[in-house]
Computed example of a mutant assay.
Amino acid sequence: MSAKVRVDNLSKKTDDDTMRWAFSEFGTVLDSIVLRDRDTGESRGFGFVTFGSPQEAEAAIAGLNEQEIDGSRIRVVHANSR
């Protein structure tokens, strides 16, 4: 069963691959996406990472919340399901 985390306060230079690399330390990353503005293509400052299990998502939250990636201190929380 997969689990998703939301990552807030991303640097404008953080991309999908950078986020995947940073989060892969905590488990199997199934998907990693930085949301971008439709018109400008610039990062909207947040994204989502999907892990292979809830335990991996918990480890990522514990390990990366309030840590720095690309010069920005990120916030990592459970993603709300729609």
Score class of each variant (00 low, 15 high):
Val76Ile: 10
Phe26Ser: 05
Glu42Phe: 03
Arg44Ile: 07
Ala79Val: 02
Glu58Met: 11
His78Val: 13
Asp15Met: 03
Lys4Asn: 12
Ala59Tyr: 10
Lys4Phe: 10
Asp31Asn: 02
Ile33Pro: 04
Ala59Glu: 09
Ala60Pro: 13
Asn9Cys: 06
Asp17Trp: 02
Thr14Trp: 02
Asp70Ala: 05
Gln67Val: 15
Gly45Met: 11
Arg44Phe: 05
Arg73Thr: 08
Glu56His: 03
Asp15Arg: 03
Gly71Asp: 04
Arg82Trp: 07
Gly41Tyr: 07
Ser11Cys: 03
Ala22Met: 09
Arg38His: 15
Thr28Ser: 15
Ala3Val: 10
Gln67Lys: 08
Glu66Ile: 12
Phe23Glu: 00
Glu58Leu: 13
Gly41Ala: 05
Val76Pro: 01
Thr14Met: 02
His78Glu: 15
Arg73His: 09
Lys4Cys: 15
Asn65Gly: 13
Ser32Ala: 10
Ser24Ala: 08
Ser72Cys: 08
Ser53Val: 09
Asn9Val: 04
Met19Trp: 00
Asn9Tyr: 14
Asn80Ser: 12
Ala3Glu: 06
Ile69Gln: 04
Asp16Thr: 00
Arg36Asp: 08
Arg6Leu: 06
Ile74Glu: 03
Gly47Glu: 12
Arg20Leu: 08
Thr28Gln: 09
Ala57Thr: 07
Ala79Leu: 07
Arg73Met: 09
Arg38Trp: 02
Ile69Ser: 13
Ile33Gly: 07
Phe48Ile: 10
Ala3Gln: 12
Ser53Cys: 10
Arg38Met: 10
Gly27Ser: 00
Ala79Phe: 14
Asn9Gln: 03
Val76Cys: 08
Val29Phe: 00
Lys12Ile: 09
Asp31His: 04
Thr14Tyr: 01
Val49Pro: 13
Arg82Phe: 14
Lys12Trp: 14
Val29Lys: 00
Ala62Ile: 01
Val49Thr: 07
Glu66Ser: 14
Glu25Phe: 14
Asp8Met: 10
Asn80Leu: 09
Glu58Phe: 03
Gly41Thr: 04
Arg73Asp: 09
Arg44His: 06
Leu30Ser: 11
Gly27His: 01
Asp17Arg: 02
Met19Val: 03
Val7Cys: 07
Gly45Leu: 14
Glu25His: 14
Leu30Cys: 09
Gly45Arg: 03
Asn9Asp: 04
Thr50Tyr: 15
Asn9Arg: 02
Gln55Met: 06
Val76Lys: 03
Arg36Gly: 11
Val49Ala: 15
Leu10Ala: 00
Val49Phe: 08
Glu68Thr: 10
Ala60Asn: 07
Ser43Cys: 07
Arg82Asn: 12
Ser43Thr: 04
Gln55Phe: 02
Leu64Tyr: 00
Ala79Trp: 13
Ser72Asn: 15
Ala59Ile: 06
Ile69Ala: 06
Val5Met: 01
Arg36Val: 12
Asn65Cys: 07
Phe51Trp: 09
Ile69Thr: 05
Asn80His: 05
Arg36Phe: 09
Ile61Cys: 06
Ser2Val: 12
Phe26Val: 00
